[in-house]
Amino acid sequence: MMKNTNYSTWQLWSLVILRVAIGWHFLYEGITKLLNPDWSSLGYMMDSKGWFEGLFHSIAGNAALLNVMDFMNIWGLILIGAGLIIGLLTRVAAISGIVLLAFYYLSHPAIIGVTYAIPSEGSYLWVNKNLIELLTLWVIMLFPTWKTVGLDRYIFNKK
């Protein structure tokens, strides 16, 4: 599994830059939430529409569960972001990121007939930026750049 890393330099660094950029985005989303004492996923959850809106609304309606969700979201974003950037436990980070993005996508799917409190900055039908970021992480997960560029190299490359 860890064998095929014979990418060209361009291929390798393009994938690394993509990985770092996504990591940066996760990390900054996490840090801003951590540093804002008023941040809560409450409004976002309450704004959920589509297939799972009932689930997200009931999470929002439960103060204790909401706190757990907030905590997991903030630290999930930070750890995934940092992991992707420095290439530490990268595959775990990528998979966790995919799960998190799947939650975001499912809570606010870009389906026909729904509009959200926050006006969207672009135009989306079924495919939105959450989904694209999710699919990109999928690619990142399948191309183990961390075997060359990343702390994982020292953890997993011991032969």
Binding site: N36, P37, D38, L42, G43, Y44, M46, D47, A60, G61, N62, A63, A117, I118, P119
Partner: peptide, 28 residues
């Protein structure tokens, strides 16, 4: 319901507040 009051509330917060999403359920 917001803990801090300042000039820079994020756009997101303002949208949610204008729809009563923060106000109504804050802290349950």
């Amino acid at each position: 319901g917001r803990k801090n009051v300042d000039s820079v509330a994020t756009a997101t917060e303002q949208y949610f507040a204008s729809r009563g999403l923060l106000y109504t359920y804050r802290g349950g």
